[in-house]
């Protein structure tokens, strides 16, 4: 097992009478992309703010590189970088100057390092332009540039694809993978999109209402137990009749396609059954929405 890079122990934060995060125990290992998944308002940003010392925990603690952040802040934060919520910059300064100023808070950064970071995120040609002229996607990429500028060992990205169009989301995902593969950086990536976490992360934790509801390898968490699938079949009524006769299939919705819940290990068997019954299958896809996933794991179908 790889070395643990980031660990939270009983981490909790209360605002007034409301617990934003409660008794959170995370375990992020060296070199991995760790997905931190949860719907909006689940407590992801609050957790990240506590990890990065923006918020003081009500109880519990955060250890990074084996040391408590509270007692070793300077040492730890010089090896960590991140984006919290959204990348905000000095709009009246150029991309280059922003990176120079923000980078200098960690250590002296050279002009070459700044251009290299900008090149990685595809903004080298815009280095001299003021950030106020940048699109949201460009600011996100600049945020990643500042996060990698000082070559940190751990990068924390809070919803890095938030507000981006599909092309922008793809670019950011590729950047995250590139950082991990080429630089060996450990990446802690929060998202409310299961597909995003599934596409890049090796392990993940799932947060809901401030509480951890699952943590482990992405492949294991997503494959265990029953899953939801959408089937597009012709003729639809005949397919529906067959599905309703199979004891281990639960039809949960019908519309343009048929949504069923089955043991994911029997997906191929069901597909074969439909085809051999003379049904044309145009799509047989696992539903990968966070909502479905939550339904699944809160019903106890997954072991945490």
């Amino acid at each position: 097992m790889s070395e643990t890079i980031l660990m939270t122990e009983g981490l909790s934060k209360r605002f007034g009478s409301r617990w934003a995060v409660k008794d959170l125990n995370l375990d992020v290992r060296a070199g991995e992309i760790f997905g931190f998944l949860g719907p909006n308002g689940a407590g992801k940003s609050t957790t990240i703010r506590m990890i990065l010392t923006l918020l003081l925990p009500t109880s519990g603690n955060v250890k990074i590189f084996g040391k408590e952040v509270r007692g070793h802040r300077v040492e730890i934060l010089s090896r960590v970088c991140g984006i919290v919520e959204k990348p905000d910059f000095y709009l009246f300064l150029s991309a280059h100057k922003n990176l120079e100023l923000l980078g200098s808070l960690s250590r002296k950064v050279t002009r070459d390092e700044i251009y290299e970071a900008l090149e990685i995120v595809g903004l080298k040609a815009r280095a001299g332009d003021k950030v106020k002229t940048f699109s949201h996607g460009m600011k996100q990429r600049l945020g990643i540039a500042q996060a990698i500028l000082t070559r940190p060992d751990l990068v924390i990205l809070d919803e890095p694809t938030s507000g981006l169009d599909p092309q922008g989301m793809k670019e950011v995902r590729e950047l995250v993978l590139k950082l991990s593969r080429e630089h060996g950086t450990t990446i802690f990536l929060s998202s409310h999109l299961l597909t995003e976490v599934e596409a890049v992360a090796q392990r993940m934790a799932v947060l809901n209402h401030g509480e951890l509801i699952a943590q482990g390898a992405v492949s294991e968490l997503l494959s265990n137990g029953s899953s939801y699938f959408t089937i597009s079949a012709t003729p639809m009524d005949k397919a529906l009749a067959i599905l309703r006769r199979v004891s281990w299939v639960e039809v949960v919705a019908e519309g343009n396609g048929i949504d069923v819940r089955i043991d994911s290990r029997r997906a191929a068997e069901l597909n074969r059954l439909l085809v051999t019954s003379g049904i044309d299958i145009s799509a047989f896809a696992a539903k990968r929405t966070l909502e479905d996933y939550f339904l699944k794991i809160t019903e106890g179908a997954s072991e945490v």
Binding site: L52, L77, L102
Partner: peptide
């Protein structure tokens, strides 16, 4: 929002 950037530095 730039204060966040400053405060997560050493």
């Amino acid at each position: 929002g730039t204060l966040r950037f400053m405060l997560i530095r050493p």
